[in-house]
Structures are given as C-alpha cells and as structure tokens.
C-alpha cells in the first residue's frame, strides 16, 4: 500500500481591476479626505461608497455627493485572527441608506449601537479604502 500522495501547490495569478467612474470618485475622494456617496434618481436611495447602480432598484445612479464625514455604528464584532485583534463595524455614513464595513479602533466595552463615529485619516492621501485608518468614537 503506497503512502497517500498529497500535492502542495499554488495558483499564482496577476490581476488588474478597473474601478469605473463611481468607485473611482469614492476612492479619489478618500485621498481628498472626503467620503463620496451616490443618490438614485429614481428611488432616492443614498449609497456609500458611491456606486454606479442603485442597490435597491438597479437604476443608474445620478450624481455623486459628498457625505458628512461622520458615521453611526449599527453593529460590530471583535475578532482575533493570527494574534491580531480587530473590531469590525458596519457604519451608516452621513445618514446614508446603506452601511459600510470598516475597522473601529476603540475598546469593545466602549462601543454601543447608535454611537457616533468619525474617520481617523491616514497620513498618506492614497485613493484606497485604507485612506481611512479606522473609525473612532466622536
């Protein structure tokens, strides 16, 4: 009886990702320390991050809009992965109809649903989600 053959392999592939105008507006907005959303011209749903199609009714989004750089914590969880403990929150930005996932930098015992959060900006103005280092209590 032979030993089971177990192959240890990898799949290593390079990719490119084209953001499109609405995600680009959101990401470059972050580099400007603005949080950009979009409003549906049909059902008036406001979504953050800005997106090309309404998440509710699928209509083409109208214009982008700058959101108040403030959020409400709707729910959160604290997870320890490979020794790193982080709190992830779903945050309603500037009264939008959607929630955005980001890191919340605060003691879990200090968090409450409905509490006000504000972004803590990274020193580097990059067009990436990490331009916001974390949300922290206002």
């Amino acid at each position: 009886m032979s030993e089971p053959t177990v192959l240890h392999q990898k799949i290593n592939l390079p990719y490119r990702y084209t953001a499109g105008d609405f995600h680009k507006a959101f990401l470059y907005g972050l580099a400007d320390r603005r949080i950009v959303g979009s409003r549906c011209p049909a059902c008036l749903t406001v979504a953050v991050p800005a997106r090309p199609f309404c998440p509710e009714c699928s209509a083409h989004s109208g214009e982008t809009m700058d959101m108040k750089p403030q959020g409400t914590l709707e729910t959160w969880s604290t997870a320890t992965i490979r020794g790193v403990t982080r709190t992830y929150g779903l945050i309603r930005i500037g009264g939008a109809d959607t929630l955005m996932l980001h890191i919340v930098d605060a003691e879990p015992s200090a968090l409450e649903v409905g509490m006000e959060l504000v972004p803590r900006w990274s020193p580097e103005p990059v067009p990436e989600i990490t331009a916001i280092a974390a949300f922290v209590p206002a």
């Binding site: 084209t18 953001a19 499109g20 105008d21 995600h23 090309p52 199609f53 083409h60």
Partner: peptide, 12 residues
Amino acid sequence: RRLDVSIPEMVR
C-alpha cells in the same frame, strides 16, 4: 481593454 468601466458597468 475597457478602461472606462468596471465589470458590472460593462455587463449593464
């Protein structure tokens, strides 16, 4: 190359 649109936008 469609640099002007994301995948969902192209599909739409």
